Simulated scan of single mutants.
Amino acid sequence: MTVPTLSAAKYLCEASEWSLSNLKLQKLLYISHMMHLGRTGTPLIDGHFEAWDYGPVEPSLYHHVKAFGRNEIGPVFHTVAPVTDPVAKDVMERTFQSLRNMTPGQLVGVTHWDQGAWAQHYRPDTRGAVIPNEAILEEYARRLKSGS
Rank of each mutant, 00 (worst) to 15 (best):
G116E: 10
G47D: 14
L107E: 11
L137H: 12
D53H: 03
P86M: 12
T40K: 05
A81F: 02
P86H: 07
V80C: 09
I73A: 00
L99K: 08
D114W: 13
L99G: 02
Q106D: 10
G105K: 06
I136D: 01
H78C: 04
S60W: 00
L99F: 09
P104M: 10
N133P: 10
E93K: 14
T95I: 14
G109H: 06
P124V: 00
V110I: 15
V76R: 02
P82M: 02
A129H: 10
T42Y: 13
V108H: 00
G116R: 01
D114Y: 10
V83Y: 03
P124R: 09
G69V: 03
L107K: 06
Y140F: 15
V80M: 06
R123Q: 15
V110Q: 05
H48F: 12
G105D: 10
F77I: 12
M102N: 12
Q115T: 13
V57N: 02
F68P: 07
L107F: 06
L61A: 04
P56D: 06
L44P: 02
F96D: 11
Q106E: 15
V91G: 07
V91Q: 05
G116I: 08
A119E: 08
D46V: 05
V65A: 04
V76D: 02
G74W: 00
G128I: 14
E58L: 02
G55A: 08
D46P: 06
E50C: 05
Y54M: 11
R127A: 09
E138I: 05
T95M: 01
Y122M: 04
T42L: 12
G55V: 06
R100Y: 07
Q115V: 09
G116V: 11
G47F: 06
V108K: 07
R70W: 08
V108Y: 03
D90H: 07
E139L: 09
A88Y: 05
P132S: 03
P75Q: 12
E138P: 00
T126F: 05
D125T: 08
I136E: 04
M92L: 15
E138L: 15
T111E: 06
Q120M: 14
T79I: 01
G128P: 00
I136Y: 02
G128F: 00
E139P: 09
A81E: 14
Q120S: 12
Q120K: 15
A81R: 15
D90T: 11
H78F: 13
V108M: 06
T95L: 08
F68K: 01
F49A: 01
N71T: 05
P43S: 14
A135S: 15
I45S: 05
H64M: 03
